[in-house]
């Protein structure tokens, strides 16, 4: 199912600036699509067309099959979660009241709202009894953004728009929140449109990536495909010279491991460790980059992949090298 569809969309501002021109692509339900590009490339404008903070000058934006311009602006926005870099938490309201905003606007009854607040704070790893009655200014930057995300999720939206949600955070907090959010994504099954200017964030977060160059989408593809076959020089430059290494980040070991039976000595790593007590293993969802760094750390040539305490495959250094080299 298509959640959002851009059809030949153009946006020209009243001062004549062309923000985007003839943009067309589809966003699948339940996936995360990252809009990435340099500043002023039109990625944020594209996002604002979805919840009608802007209206297109030409073309049509479809939300769950209907032209957004035929939907009520206010209802549409209430149905779509919205997170911005500046978070925009309401300073005069507690964390709980902030999260309750949209459910209240939608007229949910109080007990349902309270339940939802608790549920979301649990999900964000912020115990409700500690955080519900705090004011935003009492929270750290990372906690504020968690509340921002919880607030956007409050009315169980089918679609979430996130405009550089982690952009204002320090690198460590950003990385933690990205990881948490990836986990969260598995649980909530929401279609996400995510704007960033960082290609690394895009590769990490996106199922699909739309790369923008001044007002145009130059490539719309999976992270792997973008690393493998950049559409043009701009994409190549934007992705960077270390494409090979980035490819390792987006490749999960389960996609490159060999069958467990194929190699008898899956115990190599353990044996190589010297005493056989410490098992150095990988899980299927680990990236090839993690696999490589562990191999270097423990000075081994291959590592077993383990799921539910059973060995499901093996990854070798050679395989990883090949991925890194491919296409360069």
């Amino acid at each position: 199912m298509t959640a959002i569809r851009f059809e030949d969309v153009t946006k020209v501002y009243s001062d004549g600036t062309v923000a985007i021109e003839n943009v067309s692509y589809e966003v699948e339900e339940g996936t995360t699509t990252v809009l990435v590009g340099p500043s002023g490339c039109g990625k944020t404008t594209t996002m604002k067309l979805v919840n009608r903070l802007e209206d297109p000058s030409g073309g049509t934006v479809y939300y769950e099959g209907s032209d957004v311009e035929e939907l009520d602006r206010i209802d549409l926005r209430r149905d779509i979660g919205y997170v911005i870099q500046e978070i925009g938490l309401f300073g005069h309201m507690t964390v709980g009241e902030n999260i309750a905003t949209v459910p209240e606007l939608k007229g949910w009854d109080e007990s349902r709202i309270d339940e939802r607040i608790d549920e979301l704070l649990e999900l964000m790893d912020m115990p409700p009894e500690d955080y519900c009655d705090q004011y935003p200014r009492e929270l750290s930057g990372g906690q504020r953004q968690r509340v921002g995300i919880a607030r956007a999720l409050a009315s169980e939206p089918d679609v979430m728009l996130m405009d550089e949600p982690f952009g204002a955070l320090d690198p460590i907090t950003r990385e933690n929140l990205q990881d948490e959010f990836l986990e969260l994504q598995q649980q909530i099954d929401t279609t996400i449109l995510f704007v960033t200017h960082s290609i690394d964030e895009a590769l990490k977060m996106g199922d699909k990536i739309a790369i923008y160059d001044v007002g145009q989408v130059v490539q719309y593809d999976t992270p792997q495909e973008i690393l493998e076959n950049p559409a043009n020089e701009f994409v190549e430059d934007f992705v960077g010279a270390d494409r090979g290494l980035k490819r390792l980040q987006v490749t999960q070991v389960q996609t490159i491991m060999s069958e467990p039976g194929a190699e008898a000595d899956t115990g190599t790593a353990i044996a190589a460790d010297g005493n056989g007590k410490m098992d150095v293993t990988l899980s299927p969802a680990d990236s090839a980059q993690v696999a490589l760094s562990r191999m270097i750390q423990h000075d081994v040539e291959k590592l077993p992949v383990v799921a539910d305490s059973a060995v499901v495959g093996t990854v070798t250094k050679d395989t990883i090298h090949n991925i890194a080299r491919r296409g360069d």
């Binding site: 903070l53 209802d75 926005r77 779509i80 925009g88 300073g91 905003t101 606007l105």
Partner: peptide, 27 residues
């Protein structure tokens, strides 16, 4: 009142009057 706070409220689906009543006036 911080512009981004108002933008967030608008993006969440508040009408102009709701933004005034719930966000701008209290702040």
């Amino acid at each position: 009142v911080d512009r981004e706070t108002v933008n967030a409220a608008r993006g969440m689906g508040m009408t102009d009057w709701e933004i005034m009543k719930r966000i701008q006036l209290p702040l």
